[in-house]
Amino acid sequence: MPRVLSDERRDLVKAIADFCRRECGTKEQRDKLTANGQEQHNQRLYEKMAALGWLSIAVPEEYDGAGRGMVDLCLFLQGTAYGRAPISGFGTTVIAAAAYEKFGTEQQKRVVLQGVTRGRVEAISMSEPGAGSDVGALTCRADRAAGGYLLNGQKTWCSNAHFADHILLVARTGQGDSKHQGLTQFMVPTDAEGLRIRGIDTMGGKDVNDLYFTDCFIPDSAVVGAPGQGWSQLMAGLNLERMILAALMLGVAQRAFDDTLQYVRQREQFGRPIGSFQTLKHRIADMATELECARLLLDDVAAAIDAEPDRMFAREASMAKLKCTELAKHVTLEGMQMMGGYGYATEYGMEALLRQTVVSTVYGGTSEIQRDIIGRTYGL
């Protein structure tokens, strides 16, 4: 790995790797932490990481965080994904926390950002049954009521809502000349009266939820940012969301590659290791090259964001998300093929990595949406 890291960052990477090997390094440990793979988040492990200061790596110092940037956040995400740490709540928590940091009231910031340092989880909800990639088509409403708003409607595919403290909700508060006008963000407690959370069974286990709002009252103090400005606030957070997904999937891809490499070195057929056959050797070489290309891209974009944190890197962040998620899916599929029946067996873990990567090309903006965004930045 040609990456050059400072001593401090090298120590962080090593500490994360050591922690993951110790706490969740075996299948038996992971099965115990995840109810045999059905749960994607273990709160006890998560809080151990909080105590080490890792969860607050990107939280500003005035809210008890480390005040680090995108490069360090990506290192943490890659390391925990590679180590297969079951902390799925972290990604949505960081995305939501960044929105509160930029647009929230001081009280909202203290509740959420200081909560991150203690290992609390946050969720964010945009998608609806009729509004996925087209977020502007959402219909979940927040209508004015005495002292606040009444929420009515349905949301779907909301990750981690079943164990989060709050949901950063995007709802319609009005209409305008554009479908993107009249959207507002709200801080909704997950125990609010009138909110029902129902899990959705998926091939990845218990991770996402439907949300049903029936005259769910939230006070004026729950508005995040300016009413009617939800769309522009969402756009301001896209760099972060795409980089989080890219970093996570690059970590998974590297783990799948390393596991595959170990297998083809050890597995013998026709009197020699199967990795010595040219057809597999060349596929390994291609994957290794693509992984390095993806790593260089991610590192470069992360460094650029740290240098200009207020600038939108729509093209570059979309490129990173597209490249890393599609590559992770490719590497895990290749790993399964090279491992044959063992790749399909739960004992070896490749099938679990594959399940993680397939959905990554869908959530956070599909690969098709990322390509469309990239194309538009070239005036197409």
Rank of each mutant, 00 (worst) to 15 (best):
D372R: 10
L151H: 06
T117S: 14
D299H: 02
A85K: 00
Q262G: 07
F186L: 07
K155D: 02
K206A: 12
E268N: 02
K206C: 12
G153N: 08
V94L: 12
R371A: 03
D177N: 14
R242E: 14
Q154F: 14
E268W: 01
G132Q: 12
G176V: 07
Y342F: 15
I218F: 10
L168I: 02
V135W: 15
Q233F: 09
C158I: 09
L380V: 15
L150Y: 15
Y63R: 05
R172L: 13
F186N: 08
A35I: 09
E193I: 07
Q38C: 08
T325Y: 00
L211A: 06
M126R: 10
A15P: 05
P189V: 05
S232E: 12
C20G: 03
A81L: 01
T260W: 11
E23Q: 08
P60H: 03
G89T: 01
F213C: 11
E23F: 03
Q370P: 09
V4T: 14
K32N: 09
V112W: 04
M203I: 15
S360V: 02
L238C: 07
Q337D: 15
K27P: 08
R21K: 10
V358R: 09
Q108W: 04
D258Q: 00
Q38S: 10
L296F: 09
A97W: 01
A303D: 08
I95C: 14
T34A: 07
Y82C: 01
G230W: 06
G228F: 05
D259I: 01
P227A: 03
S6T: 15
V188A: 08
Y63T: 03
A161Y: 00
I274H: 06
V59I: 15
S367F: 05
A85S: 07
D286H: 12
R311H: 09
R283M: 14
A317R: 01
L113K: 00
A288T: 01
V112I: 14
I305V: 13
M235A: 13
K27F: 12
T105F: 11
T332L: 04
I200V: 09
G340N: 08
V362E: 13
F76D: 01
S232H: 07
H282P: 11
L211W: 08
T105P: 10
H166P: 09
Q43T: 10
G83C: 06
L354D: 14
A51M: 07
G130R: 13
N209C: 15
I369T: 13
G182H: 09
A285I: 06
L327R: 02
V121P: 05
E62H: 09
R84S: 10
R272W: 14
G176R: 05
T93M: 02
V112T: 06
V359Y: 12
G65Q: 01
N209K: 07
K321F: 10
L322P: 00
D165Q: 05
V112A: 04
P227L: 03
E292M: 07
V362H: 06
L322A: 02
L234G: 08
D306K: 00
T117L: 07
Q229R: 12
L240W: 02
S6F: 05
G83D: 05
K155L: 01
F217Y: 14
G65W: 02
I244W: 00
S367R: 00
I244R: 00
K14F: 13
E8P: 05
T377F: 04
V71Y: 04
R283P: 11
